[in-house]
Simulated assay, not measured.
Amino acid sequence: MRKMIFTPIGGEFWYDKNIVTKCSETVSGYFLNGGRSSLSCICKYLRQVGKNNIMVPSYLCPTILDVFDNERMNYMFYDINEDFSINISSIEKNIGQVESIMFINYFGLSLSDIEMMYLTSLKNNNKVLIEDKVHTISNQYFGDFAFNSFRKFLPISGSLLQTDINIGTIINDLEMNESYIDQIKKARALKTDCIVNNKGSEEGYLLAFKLAESLYYQKFAYGSPSEKALLEKINFVKIKRIRNKNYKYLQNLLMGIEDIKIIFKDIGSKTPLGLPIYVTENKREVILNRLKLKQIYLPVHWNLKSEKRIKNNTTKIMSDRIITLIIDQRYKLTDLDRLVCEIETILG
């Protein structure tokens, strides 16, 4: 059984008492099981009101397209530039063919004031605006609909669907995915015991998370009251502060490494999902595979090379070179030192 030599970097979250506060904060919105469930409910509403022709960014998680296909939505793409800015002219070409448009705030960092003004103008011209906030933890939104995914930031399953539109009848048709909730709690408990108490094994909790993931995708569902109760005790101010500090520290360590290009260099006070980088062509898989041997697990947002529904060449190139470096609240600056040291060793 594989024991912890270092605290693993990346992977699913474990329970951490340091991010819990004594002050509860009420969560306002429809609390669903995950981002897929929120998006499914939005699609059901759009079909009901005859606005199921939608424009979406060419760079996105393929599971979004799975939901659209499942809900019989008609989608077309607009372009995303290499710096993750919106190619507004590509929207303007086809905006008359759709009633709805979805946008993504990539890594919680990409959305500019100009883009927000443009998207707001579409909303003011009766386009339904859907805000994908899966990479953010902010409560603010300006779309007709907005949804997030807390498991990207916390050891909590759930998605907050925010809207001023009454979709209660759609929400009421959902059930809870109790088998998934039971299994994900078990998996998180196993990982917590392994990380905190050095009990059990990495293989044990990875297997439990794999089973939970398969159960998650079985159905769209309402959120768990116990997960929502835990969410209301999270110290978001502390989490945002640590993530912002870790990002800037890691960015400084990466400066000057020849094969790495930092995508977002000036984040101000924003709260990042991670620190996305481009690496020199053909070096990504080598980096990822060798880091795994050191218990460092970095995600790719997203691997679109084999995604046949997306044809955009710029998207494919971006997807082939991107890695998201971990900067979340679980890690100290010494963990980030280790991450960069291992990357430098691999790159030579």
Rank of each mutant, 00 (worst) to 15 (best):
I326N: 11
Q251C: 14
L161E: 07
L190N: 10
E203S: 13
R290W: 01
L291V: 07
I310G: 06
K127N: 09
R338V: 03
K311G: 00
V20M: 12
N124T: 05
M1Q: 05
M255L: 10
S37C: 09
R151D: 12
T136W: 03
S112V: 02
D173W: 00
P155Y: 04
K152Q: 08
V196F: 04
D113W: 00
R151L: 02
Q48Y: 14
F220R: 05
T26P: 00
S112L: 10
Q140R: 07
K305W: 08
G348L: 09
K308T: 12
E71R: 02
T324I: 02
T63K: 14
T169K: 10
A229F: 12
S226R: 10
L122F: 03
E131S: 12
S28N: 15
L347T: 06
R36A: 12
S37T: 09
V98Y: 11
F264N: 10
D132E: 06
K233R: 14
E99Y: 04
L160H: 00
N124K: 12
A146K: 07
L60C: 05
T136L: 03
I9R: 14
G158N: 10
D164I: 04
M55I: 11
F77S: 07
I346C: 10
M117D: 15
N53M: 08
F150L: 15
E115S: 14
I327E: 02
I317F: 06
S100M: 11
K3A: 03
V279P: 06
Y222K: 15
K123S: 09
R290N: 14
P57V: 09
D69S: 13
I130D: 01
I170D: 06
K233A: 00
V279L: 05
Y75I: 08
I310P: 04
I317T: 14
L291E: 07
G158P: 12
F68W: 02
A146F: 12
D266I: 05
P225A: 04
V67T: 14
N166C: 07
Q329H: 15
K228D: 04
V98H: 11
S100A: 13
